[in-house]
């Protein structure tokens, strides 16, 4: 497996003529030898993977390859599963997120998550967004809260569609709108990283295109990791792609390279539809 190539610069920041040295950054999240066990059965094997800021990293691989399990390590969602054990180290801004001093609730406000099925709270559109900032004490008054709700909905590309019906239930929106509501809810607590677990798999192609446009917009501010079953989606939205198979990280590299000239035979076979 080759993770050494270009681990020291962020491809998202290297545009035409950009000086590579200018784009030298450290990974936002740096995973070292991460393994996951469910009731003693190993699901992820020694994965070392850097995740860069202001770019989208896509995790691809067949069902059961460990990509979602790995994603859930990044905000300690596996803590909530009985019998799950995570070993190895995951550094975020130099701090090991698995150390006992780290409060998982605070961590999850820094590392937001969007799931496969949109899951708005059974509350109004406004309260869906306002809930996080309220419980985390991010606002002092109603005015400030209104501003966060509006800003989050704008960033999620939903404001124009819902600004006149903020009091209606979140569940009254269409599937694609609900997913954007969930993204707005995730960014309302000012996260640094957004994890997306197949965020478009229950959406039609138009709603999917809207989410992908949103992801492209969000990557200017956030570090995004997305798990997707659609290779075309990974190719469209990400700058880096990691291919998982049977719990192992087989290959990771610039998305262009992975989809035109993968180095590993297993990656080639998977993305060209020769096994799955």
């Amino acid at each position: 497996m080759d993770t050494t190539a270009q681990t020291d610069y962020n491809p998202a920041l290297t545009g035409d003529g950009a000086d590579k040295a200018q784009a030298l950054v450290y990974p936002r999240i740096d995973c070292k030898d991460v393994s996951v066990f469910y009731s003693g059965k190993q699901a992820v094997f020694d994965v070392s993977l850097p995740v860069y800021d202001r770019s989208v990293t896509a995790l691809i691989g067949p069902s059961g390859c460990g990509k979602s399990t790995f994603l859930r390590c990044l905000n300690r969602m596996n803590d909530t599963i009985d019998g799950a054990k995570v070993t190895g180290e995951i550094f975020m801004d130099g701090e090991n997120i698995n150390s006992p001093e780290v409060d998982p609730v605070l961590l999850r406000s820094r590392v937001g998550m969007v799931f496969q099925k949109p899951n708005p709270f059974p509350k109004s559109i406004y309260d869906n967004i306002a809930y996080g900032p309220r419980i985390h004490g991010l606002v002092e008054d109603r005015q400030e809260l209104d501003a966060i709700v509006e800003k989050s909905l704008r960033r999620a590309g939903l404001w124009q569609e819902v600004k006149d019906r903020l009091a209606q239930p979140g569940t009254s929106l269409s599937g694609g709108q609900q997913q954007r509501l969930c993204i707005a809810r995730a960014i309302a607590v000012r996260p640094e990283v957004i994890l997306m677990d197949e965020p478009c798999s229950s959406l039609d192609p138009i709603a999917t295109a809207r989410i992908e446009e949103l992801i492209d917009e969000l990557r200017k501010r956030y570090c995004i990791v997305i798990v997707t079953h659609s290779m075309q989606q990974a190719a469209r939205v990400s700058q880096r792609t990691a291919f998982f198979h049977l719990g192992h990280l087989v290959e990771m590299g610039d998305t262009d390279q992975i989809f035109t000239s993968p180095r590993e035979r297993r990656t080639e076979d998977y993305i060209t539809g020769r096994f799955g």
Binding site: A235, T260, S261
Partner: peptide, 9 residues
Amino acid sequence: RQPMAHDLR
């Protein structure tokens, strides 16, 4: 078919 990798090449 949206060919990828060797197929694309």
